[in-house]
């Protein structure tokens, strides 16, 4: 089944790896800026918005892609764990809907945060 073209499991398998690769780069940037640099000494509204104001478009695009990659990778990973335990069809549908709702909610919430902070720094 895995070799059938367009098999949905194959797409999510590949996307899990592609988002994972992006997260390697994204997390090195994010962890370096937040935890390994002097800004990390005290993170506040001023330090965050000042950094974002240096390149609002660049940081904005980076954080939007980073947000979607994180949410997809996290929820798809949980989905893979759920599949491993072979739940019944009804329960599987429930988990799928729940994960989609969580993903949509936090994507919207994250976008609200990113655009709010970028706009505040501009």
């Amino acid at each position: 089944m895995a070799t059938k073209p367009g098999f949905p499991g194959l797409t999510s398998w590949l996307l899990q790896r592609l988002t994972g690769l992006f997260l390697v780069v994204g997390l090195f940037i994010h962890v370096n800026v937040i935890h390994f640099t002097t800004e990390a000494r005290l993170i506040d509204f001023s330090s965050v918005t000042t950094r974002l104001a240096e390149n609002p478009t660049g940081w904005g695009i980076f954080y939007v892609i980073f947000l979607f990659a994180c949410i997809y990778h996290g929820l798809n990973g949980i989905w893979a764990i759920i599949l491993d335990f072979k739940p019944g069809a009804g329960l599987l549908r429930f988990y799928l809907v729940a994960l989609w709702l969580i993903g949509i909610f936090f994507s919207a919430y994250g976008l609200f945060g990113i655009f709010g902070l970028v706009r505040a720094g501009a």
Binding site: F45, I78, I102, F106, G110, G113, I114, L117, A120
Partner: peptide, 29 residues
């Protein structure tokens, strides 16, 4: 992975709540 997924959502709640209000953002952080 489960820990990080859980952390991600907590992190978003802390960071993305009141992004336009300096006082509320600072007290949360």
């Amino acid at each position: 992975g489960i820990l990080l997924a859980f952390y991600l959502f907590m992190h978003l709640i802390v960071i993305a709540t009141s992004p336009g209000n300096a006082g509320a953002f600072d007290s949360r952080l």
